[in-house]
């Protein structure tokens, strides 16, 4: 009797620190995609502190959670609109091309689309946001770390390459602009969390 063997792909669970990275990317992607809804604000409001970890990350996390308890979704949406959308001109550009420096926005977008295609990814059909929106870039990192969108996790060199090419060049300037904008209140806390997390990411890529 002939045995039939076929390949079965069983996804391996992510190590906890990689799951944590993916979830921070997911959270930041969502917060930069739109203002937090009541459910997310409620979850953040009752979240446990990050004890014993990076002090800046822990402080920023606690501060965001406290702010979430005092924030309502309408005010959060209004602040998001005022900062990143606005009527006429946004107070802070949420596009990497604006903050990325050399090369300009358009060649950067071309390279982004090509790099995504090489990773087996693309933007959904009908998407109206420009490709270099930070929500999309952060969500791409979530997919590269944890898998999703029809593909498995990417290796660390691929994650690092995407981060260093498309996120690192401008995210510091972007987050500083968010933190310094007079209209920024809740999003000042979001920016602080993102700054602490990005600093950890940069340092960890240098170790790996």
């Amino acid at each position: 009797m002939e045995a039939t063997v076929s390949r079965v792909d069983v996804p391996r669970p992510l190590p906890p620190e990689e799951a944590g990275r993916a979830d921070f990317y997911a959270l930041l992607a969502a917060l930069f995609h739109h203002g937090p809804d009541a459910r997310l604000l409620g979850t953040l409001a009752i979240a446990e502190p990050l004890d014993g970890g990076d002090p800046a990350l822990a402080a920023a996390w606690s501060s965001l959670c406290e702010a979430s308890a005092a924030m309502d979704p309408e005010a959060a949406a209004a602040e998001y609109e005022s900062l990143f959308v606005g009527v006429g001109k946004a107070k802070v550009s949420i596009y990497a091309g604006f903050h990325g420096g050399a090369g300009g926005a358009q060649p950067q977008r071309v390279r982004l689309i090509e790099d995504l295609a090489a990773l087996g990814l693309a933007f959904p059909a009908g998407r109206t946001l420009p490709e270099d929106h930070y929500a999309g870039l952060l969500d791409t990192m979530r997919v590269l770390v944890a898998g999703g969108a029809g593909r498995g996790p990417a290796g660390l060199p691929q994650q690092r390459a995407f981060f260093e090419t498309h996120i690192a060049p401008g995210i510091g300037r972007f987050l500083a602009a968010v933190a310094e904008a007079p209209e920024s209140n809740y999003y000042r806390k979001v920016a602080a969390l993102a700054q602490a997390f990005v600093r950890i990411e940069i340092e960890s890529f240098n170790l790996g």
Binding site: A29, A30, T43, A117
Partner: peptide, 16 residues
């Protein structure tokens, strides 16, 4: 929070 946030967000990247 991260997982929950994702469920409410429009997908930003998808399979090519």
């Amino acid at each position: 929070a991260g997982r929950q946030a994702l469920t409410g967000a429009a997908p930003t990247v998808t399979k090519e």
